[in-house]
Every structure is written in C-alpha cells, then in structure tokens.
Design a protein around this nucleic acid. Structure first.
Lengths: 128, 128
DNA sequence: TGACTTCCTTTACATTTGTAGATCATACTA
DNA sequence: TAGTATGATCTACAAATGTAAAGGAAGTCA
C-alpha cells in the first residue's frame, strides 16, 4: 500500500468529482467540472487516464464506454495530504501544526468546542 | 502578499537549509544538503536561482559571490502548506483535518495535553 | 441506412520540475 | 605570476503536468 502520492490540484478536482458519483464516465466528470475549471473533454480524459496509471483511479471497459471509480478513498487522500504537510512543513511536529491551523483562520467558538471534544475523546482511547 | 505558492519537496529541502543559516551561499547549502540528497552544486544552484525568481529566496551579489536569504519566513511557508491541505483535502473543514491528524499518528499523552491547552488558550483570546 | 451526436483515441505542445555537465571567471598560493 | 581550487554561468535534457485539437468509431433517430 504505497503512500497515495500527493495529488496535484487538477487531480484533486477530478477525484473529488469521482467520489461524488461512482462509478462514473469521463463525460460526466467533464460536465461536472466544466463550470469551475473550463476544461475540455480531452483534458479531463487525459487527466483521468493518467490517474489510472498512477493508481488513483480504476477504469473498466464496458463495451464502448469506460467506467471509472476511485482507487483511493477520500480518507486516504486526505490523510496523505495532511501527513505530507505535517512532515514537510512541520517536521512531524503535531502541536505546532494545529497551532498554526487555528491561528491562521477564523475559528468559530463552535469549532473550538468540537476540537476540545475530539481531543478529550482521543485521550480516552489512548489511555487504555 | 501573494500566497507563498506551495513548495515542492526539493524547494522545502533548500529553504530549510537556508533558514538555518542566513545569509548563505549556494556552496554552503549544497554542502549541507549533500548527505541527504546527493545533489551536485549545479543542481542546488539551479534550484536556488529558480526560487529567487519565484520569490521564495532573495539573492544579492557581493562581488563575485552570491548571497542568499529567504524571502518567506518559516511561519509563512508552514502556513501555506497547512492551509493548502486544509483547503484542498478537507474543503476548509478544520475539525476533520485535526481529527485526521490525531488519528493518523501515534499521538503521545503529552501532545494531547498540549493540544488541549492550546485550544483552551484560543478560546480565551477568541472570546473577548 | 444515412445523418447526427457522443464518446474514444491519438498526438501534440508548452511549462515546470529534477538533475547536472561543461566551461568560464576568480581568487588564493606557492 | 603561473597553477590550482572554487564558485558562477550556461546549456541541456528527461519526466511530469496542464491543456487540448483532430480524427475515428459507435450508437441513435428519422
């Protein structure tokens, strides 16, 4: 299970669309992304085929048409990205990274409560 | 203040070395990175010059030699990377990202305490 | 069954990134 | 001052990425 290589922006756009509707065809994804990206069909198609080669998507040929599905889950991809940032930028130091996150954004009171709860929960599971 | 574009792995390696010793010369950085990367002088030099063009480093010519310094702080670069992950992978949702981080790693009890404190502190500043 | 519409396949090309050899200018040293 | 070591510049080249046009094949509707 190699690390799901980090995704490029374009790849993120595609795989997000795929997650929303699996399995799917290239024209469907192109349609979905048209507004945000303006990409032509062949652009999307090329991206998707390259992503198959990379192991980010799987494709299956049904007669004439090609069906795609994701080969990495959203959770896997998210984790890959989060851990990449953690490692690269913060040298693996978790606390500074979280600190940075909550300092760099307007965090609502509700979110702070959530975060607190989450950490409490983790403490419980950790200690056992 | 454009977003400090995300850095590539190679760029991270270079800028980290620069932060450790500013100002610095290309040969110094090459030396520093030799062990981890095996890069030749011209490789490092090319990287650094490209980073100047991108606005990641600044360079100054002192006679024959070239002195480099960072043009983005460590904090800025870290923030860029963290926010990129947040936005791209988690669609800006902070809590899930933090959740993911603490689930994907062995977090020590001490770290959990730190995190908790950090959030408490944030709550205080937020409410005012 | 011919025309139209879709989707697929192939090919292409510019830009960015990773990596470095070769050669030129300098400065130090004997 | 000639020779050597050191750093600078230029040029190169392959792989990855972003982006798409052009031309073929297949299914659909009249």
């Amino acid at each position: 299970m190699g690390k799901p290589n980090e995704l490029t922006k374009a790849e993120w756009a595609v795989i997000k669309a795929v997650w929303e509707q699996e399995p799917c065809t290239a024209p469907e994804i192109q349609e979905k992304l048209l507004k945000q990206t303006g990409w032509a069909y062949s652009t999307v198609r090329t991206l998707m085929d390259r992503m198959v080669v990379k192991g980010l998507l799987k494709s299956e040929k049904i007669r004439h048409a090609t069906l795609y599905r994701s080969a990495v889950s959203q959770a896997q991809a998210q984790r890959g990205e989060a851990l990449y940032a953690l490692k690269q930028a913060f040298n693996g130091a978790l606390t500074p990274m979280v600190q940075c996150l909550i300092d760099s954004r307007n965090v609502s009171a509700a979110e702070l409560v959530e975060l607190e709860a989450l950490i409490k929960a983790k403490k419980k599971t950790a200690r056992s």
